[in-house]
Amino acid sequence: MSFTTPYFTLPKFTYFKPKKLEDALSLLRQYKGKAKVMAGGIMLVNLMKERQIFPEYVIDIKGIDELKKISKTENGIKIGSAVTAIELQNSLIVRDNLPALAKAASYMGDRTLQHTVTIGGNISVGMPSTDGLPALMSMDSLLRIKSQDGERTIPASELVIGLGRTSLKDDEMITEIIVPYSSGLKGTYLKLINASEVAIATVAVSALLKERKLSVVIGAIAPRPYYFDHKSLQWKWEASLSENLKNASEIIGSNVKPMSDAVASSEYRKEVSKVLAVRALKEVFGGA
């Protein structure tokens, strides 16, 4: 996506802002293939302005209260898909229990845009630049997806199927994110960009530690994030941290195949992936 449009205006479309989820799903069905769901609208509006997509109908879900809730139960934490990046950062539930997600939210767009960016929109665009997806994947999160026919739940890792492509069907939308942990997580999210705010990531890494469960997700370097856990990292719980880190960085280095693009080269991304992964692991183990 190159943002080269000379246009100020958007192509013509019909705009809906339903208050109930059922109404949104019904509109999605009614105008299947011609409608787009809009949450923050960051990517959607730009794609329309670029004349890359021409939805005849836009269904704004920001008016649906049940999509804006964050709740905590013993079995996990549920986050509505229209929760904004600022709301994630301000939520005590998220800040206290899901540090990686709170940190990832602080990277979604700039300070102004964070009032508009939503977690659902951020991940369902399907672009490598998503901050939400690596964080959610590191926590083994599930996505609740609804359509008028009913609902299904998929692991966050199965959402993106290619560059800018997701497994969402035309009449489906993500309604909720379920993180299967409610406490005791150590997690972080690190990102290397060629500037402090906004710019597109070179590499993003999210790490999670909960008891004897460890995961490292590397985003921004390929169409889909890379997922590693203690098994694939051959983590030895009895060995020293330094031995494990050295080993893990080598495994990561030999398993990721980053893309080269205008942001960074493959070679550089691979090197930075290793550095950020180790930095993240040091952080979650308190060995920084």
Partner: peptide, 29 residues
């Protein structure tokens, strides 16, 4: 010094004519 550069495609077009791909310093910088 650190960020700014207009990039050109093979046909000479500017490929980053926007403030996402052409980065200028923000407050945090």
């Amino acid at each position: 010094a650190l960020y700014e550069e207009l990039k050109f495609g093979e046909d000479g077009r500017v490929i980053n004519p926007n403030l996402i791909n052409y980065y200028v310093p923000h407050f945090e910088d």
